[in-house]
């Protein structure tokens, strides 16, 4: 047994300093295309340029191309598979969780008593595995969410937040509803990843419902495919009002705007 103790000590502390300080290590986030400054000659050209994006994350507005983060799946097509790359830069940030509610309202939902003890129930509604893997990283030394008072609980009976990943498959619909029903109030729903936000690459079909918002009200969205652990952490902190969610530009009825097919 002693070897293990020694091994533990030997490897030291690797945990990120976030949220006290920013995490600067590389590879912690896939990031979003940023810096789309080009002004196109015509609106038509802009929309042609935007059409390289498979999920309609890029939108042409007049002669500009703008990005709707919740719909981006980091496919890098706007960078790597266009004649002239659309995105000149790739932003490695991760504080991008957005909410239909402003910070004050989010903070009100749970109040102060939950700020250092929030229990999560993770519900896999058809996630591809990457999203779930990123959540699991939160339990591991590099991110260790316990230090911030976030815990995964085995049953929705004790859960404050329902973390839903995946495009909401038909077969998980009833389990999701009963889990949501089983949760005590106050309860919040976190939509994890592009799939849970708008169905991701799977969209709406006979087998999936294109995101959780079609079933239950969502309180916070974490864009990304998959959202890196730090983005999830940011979302959780935002949920209890400890940090500001990213600039809110959603209309709550259809998060991520219209669905692409």
């Amino acid at each position: 047994m002693w070897e293990w103790v020694w091994e533990g000590i030997r490897s030291g502390i690797v945990t990120t300093a976030y949220p006290a300080r920013e995490e600067t290590a590389s590879g912690v986030s896939p990031g979003f295309p940023t810096d789309l400054p080009r002004t196109f000659a015509a609106a038509g050209e802009a929309s042609v340029a935007a059409s390289c994006c498979p999920t309609e994350a890029l939108l042409s507005e007049d002669q500009q191309v703008v990005l709707r983060e919740p719909r981006c799946i980091h496919c890098y097509r706007c960078l790597r598979q266009t004649e002239t790359p659309l995105a000149w830069q790739w932003q490695g940030n991760y504080e991008w969780a957005v909410s239909p509610h402003p910070r004050v309202e989010l903070a009100k939902k749970f109040g102060r008593s939950f700020r250092r003890s929030l229990h999560l129930r993770i519900l896999d509604a058809g996630a591809c595995g990457a999203c779930l893997s990123e959540i699991e990283q939160l339990n591991k030394p590099y991110y260790n969410m316990h230090r911030l008072g976030f815990f995964v609980t085995p049953t929705p009976r004790d859960a404050d937040v329902l973390v839903v990943a995946g495009p909401m498959t038909e077969h998980m619909r009833q389990p999701l509803l009963s889990a949501y029903e089983a949760m005590p109030t106050p309860k919040a729903v976190l939509a994890l990843g592009a799939c849970a936000i708008f169905g991701g690459v799977f969209g709406t079909s006979f087998a999936s419902m294109g995101g959780v918002a079609s079933l239950i009200p969502v309180d916070i969205l974490v864009p990304g495919c998959p959202p890196p652990p730090l983005a999830i952490l940011h979302a959780l902190l935002a949920l209890i009002g400890r940090v500001e969610p990213a600039a809110c530009e959603l209309n709550s009825s259809s998060p991520g705007g219209e669905r692409g097919d």
């Binding site: 929705p156 009976r157 009833q174 999701l176 009963s178 029903e181 949760m183 109030t185």
Partner: peptide, 12 residues
């Protein structure tokens, strides 16, 4: 007071 159904792991 909300009364929820029994939580049985989400079995249908």
């Amino acid at each position: 007071v909300d009364r929820g159904p029994v939580w049985a792991g989400g079995v249908r």
